[in-house]
Design a protein around this nucleic acid. Structure first.
Lengths: 329, 329
DNA sequence: CGGTGGTCAGACAACGCTGTCATGCCCGCA
DNA sequence: TGCGGGCATGACAGCGTTGTCTGACCACCG
């Protein structure tokens, strides 16, 4: 900028004015400056500019695994909201480790990102002090966190599971198994509890068949084999997330068991499996969008009390939820 | 930092030394400073630090659509490489628009990201001048770009298509259709040309059935219906990317056509479709990793000539490629 | 006891920009 | 002619750090 100023015989401030389209520059002066800028290939250093202004026009998204379709849809939605507001998005993956998440969040705070959307790895809010001290707005997604109240976007896990159970019951099932993720995850516990509660409220047999993860295809396999034989064999399965649905599909196919299935999380090819898989759809894009919008509201000065938004789920009925006579292929 | 210095009765420079673990500070002084830092909750402003040092420890990834599994896997891989090198990753989506891509890249250059990985929207290298002037290293992925030679990571489109055709021919197919993406895409043209060339070299009938996109399920539907009847009906289909594979699967199911299929791009549930879908697997994670590694090599001062790396593809044989008697369900 | 060298610490400028305030000029009006 | 006011421009400081250089102090040596 100093070089441009020298060449154009003006002060740096005038160059700054031209670059920022500030008023108060005579047209011919501006033109001269622009010509020099063009000739020298000058580009404003946003880092310096933003440092002066105290904002970075950058927000961050912290998730577990960017390759997981759930998070990649979230990421795309958040990036979109950021882009239309002229912000950049930094994505970081904590790989499910609370300590890494803490380190990642602190690094982002040190960079003075304007705000952060986090899918928290656990409920401990380990970065709370840092966030509080730095006044960095944060929005939690998918899972709540203890400690200082923060904006939180959740999915209606209870409603989702209930709709799944009710759907199966409506098709004559009474012995249903539930495969949940690692109970260390809040969502996994929510869905498990919702399953048990719904079973009770519908007057289904007690001693629910519930198996919590972490699950591998073989662990699902073992449990299925056991529960599908013996007294009161199960006739249907509910899986607690997309990965477990996949494991269950593989297991059902391998065991050639004619069980019905409702999965949690929609997936791209659910309609192409035979039979097409009935799923509880939570809308990751909508959740990401909502989270980003809430974050930007805070950035724009919204000082209202932290709020928790529960996004509805939707049961997408395909064929796998009805009573079946032949095995999943 | 000034506050800390005052409180600890030292100069800012000494605080800086402590924060950066520089030598030359007496242990008791350092301890005193650390105590004040802790008490005041001081955190170094990385923006200022990085501005002083001229590096941002940030790289960027520009893709078409973060929600597309191909790109989300790339993104996860690049982020991983960045993280293990203490860099942050900014992801941006150009939504397939060359002009938006240009704007995005220029914004990133203005932020002085240390380097950029781009899946270019077209071959025009419209940001070449800016990149050249700013000396920002760039690595192109998946598609090459004209102009200044740059590091480029490609996938072996020709080999991939050849393996698909050969596989089908080995199973007795002679009339094969090819559905490619919009020929505006370099990869789409590559795969189409490879298809035609391979057909010729294997001595298959001329007048190849080739339909280029952009494709919708219904456009695939129409073409399939036509080619599957009449003289010399096709018995197999090759699809040029994951989206088209999906469209073709839907169409084949709807039309109840007993055609064989080989798709380009693996997808998570390819093994669960009936029949399981044979695919040409290109490894997006490996490509992303390779691109990031190449970028970091440049950041570390590698001045060697720009190179183009072609990553191998692998045919994953499932059941959909053999000769079929019954329709895809 | 003066000189030498090492250790610890601070002053200052600079990174590249922008906000604030000051300055100079010209115009129009009384 | 003198003066107020608007317009175009510039000087300067400061955003929060770090690199460089200088200086105070002490120990040790001949």
């Amino acid at each position: 900028m100093a070089d441009v100023a020298t060449e154009a015989h003006v002060s740096v401030k005038t160059v700054s004015r031209v670059v920022n389209h500030e008023p108060g520059v005579r047209p011919d002066t501006a033109e001269r400056v622009r010509a020099v800028i063009e000739r020298l290939g000058f580009r404003r250093h946003d880092g310096a500019r933003l440092m002066r202004q105290g904002r970075t026009f950058t927000i961050a998204l912290v998730v577990e695994d960017l390759a997981n379709p759930f998070y990649s849809q979230v990421s795309a939605a958040v990036e979109r909201e950021a882009r239309i507001r002229q912000h950049q998005l930094i994505t970081a993956s904590a790989e499910g480790s609370p300590s890494r998440e803490r380190a990642v969040i602190e690094a982002l705070v040190d960079r003075r990102v304007d705000g952060i959307v986090v899918v928290p790895a656990d409920e401990s809010a380990s970065s709370d002090a840092v966030l509080e001290a730095s006044h960095t707005p944060i929005v939690y997604m998918d899972r709540p966190v203890r400690g200082t109240p923060r904006d939180t976007i959740l999915s209606d896990n209870h409603g989702g599971i209930r709709s799944a159970v009710e759907h199966l019951v409506a098709h004559g099932h009474r012995n249903i198994a539930f495969f949940g993720d690692d109970p260390a995850f809040w969502t996994a516990r929510q869905r498990r509890d919702a399953f048990i509660a719904t079973q009770q409220s519908l007057g289904l047999p007690a001693s629910p068949r519930v198996s919590m993860g972490p699950h591998s295809p073989s662990s699902v396999n073992d449990a299925l084999r056991q529960w599908a034989s013996g007294p009161e064999p199960i006739t249907a399965v509910i899986t607690g997330n997309n990965r477990i649905t996949l494991a269950a599909l593989l297991a059902l196919r391998e065991l050639r068991l004619p069980l019905s299935l409702v999965g949690y999380d929609d997936f791209e090819l659910a309609a192409l499996i035979d039979p097409p898989v009935t799923v509880v759809h939570q809308d990751p894009a909508a959740m990401g969008q909502k989270a980003a919008q809430q974050l930007f509201a805070r950035l724009l000065g919204d000082e209202s009390q932290a709020q928790t938004v529960v996004m509805p789920t939707r049961l997408i009925v395909r064929a796998s939820g009805v009573r079946r006579g032949s095995p999943i292929r």
